[in-house]
Structure formats: C-alpha cells, structure tokens
Amino acid sequence: MQIGVLALQGDFAAHERALRELGADVRQVRTPGELVLVDGLIIPGGESTTMLKLLLEDGMAEPLKAFAATRVIYGTCAGAILAARVVTSPAQFSFGFIDIDIERNAYGRQVDSSIRRLQPEQEFIDRTGPGKLEAIFIRAPIISRLGEGVRVLIQDEGTPVLVEQGNMLAGSFHPELTADRRVHQLFLDKVSKSTG
C-alpha cells in the first residue's frame, strides 16, 4: 500500500514525516503518472489558490476526480478547501469531493492563528485512542455547512474541524505539525480498508 502526498505547494514535507513515523510507504505526487501509483492521497495545507492553479493548468484535475471516485483522500486546510462543495470569502472553484461549504481565512490573519486542545467525538476516540487532541489552526478556514451524511469527528465549540463522508476526510487544522498521530492513523486505516 502506497500513500501519496500532493506536493504542488504547501506543507507536504510535514505530512510525509508524519506518515513515515507510522511506517507508511510514502511518495510525493505532482503528476497524473505519480497519482496512479498511490492508494490514498493527502492534499496538504498551503495556499489553495496556488494549488488550484497548478492542478487546473497541468492536467491534474480530471485524474484527481477519477481518483476521488474510488480512493481515500484527506484534505487539510487548503486541501479541505479544494475538496469542499462550495468555497466562500472569496468564492473560488472547488472539486466537491465532500458535501461541505467552507469559508477561507475565516478566523482572520496570521496573528489570529492559534493552538487549541480539543476533546474529540466518541467515534474518533473509539477508532483511534483516548485523550484530547492538539489542533493547530493557521489562517484556517471554517467548515460552515455540513451536507447530509457528513459526520463530525472533532469539533471546536460547535464548529466542525474534522469531518468524514465516504472515502473523504477533511479538516481545518494541521495534525502534521504536532506529535499526535491519531488523525493520520485514522486516514491510513481508511486507505487500508478501501484497498481490501
């Protein structure tokens, strides 16, 4: 089982490190040829406008849609923005892999970034392990609407910050920048299950 991290721009190196710590076989993905080699994909944080530009201009959009139809994708921050159904503030194209609306930079600018310790939902704890989770929000978006069938795995005072629907995971914070590996483990478990 090989795991890909989309490496067009952003904090892909931190995700690679996190996945390697869990013993995963990881590769960077920049082209359609590299995408077909992996069983699951992380779309990292970074600037969604930059990634979108590169995805659309270099022939990655259709292969990514085809991949999402059958494989597991986890989008963090900018990755969640790309995967959402509707993006606001400002509006921009997104792939709609998961039925959520998302508002960009909704907490404010960098001086409004924060680290919070959150109590995950019981389902997350059952699937990964107990304890609060350290969540780093950096110029983070807010998941502003959940479609039917989207489940909340972690929330922050009523705002969903990690959600799941089918093969998709989307989150507004950065677990790759902490030592807690439960979110990445959850993603790997999903990929493993999807490949039978």
Binding site: A7, G10, D11, F12, A14, G46, E47, A78, L177
Partner: peptide
C-alpha cells in the same frame, strides 16, 4: 512554545512556492 510553533507553522504552509 505555542507562539513559535504557530510562526513556523505558517512558514511550513509557504513551502514549495514563490
């Protein structure tokens, strides 16, 4: 510290770009 990690955190997001 949390503050310094947040500062580095944004720099991490800016990797691989211009």
């Amino acid at each position: 510290t949390d503050e310094f990690r947040l500062k580095i955190g944004l720099a991490e997001q800016l990797k691989g770009g211009v």
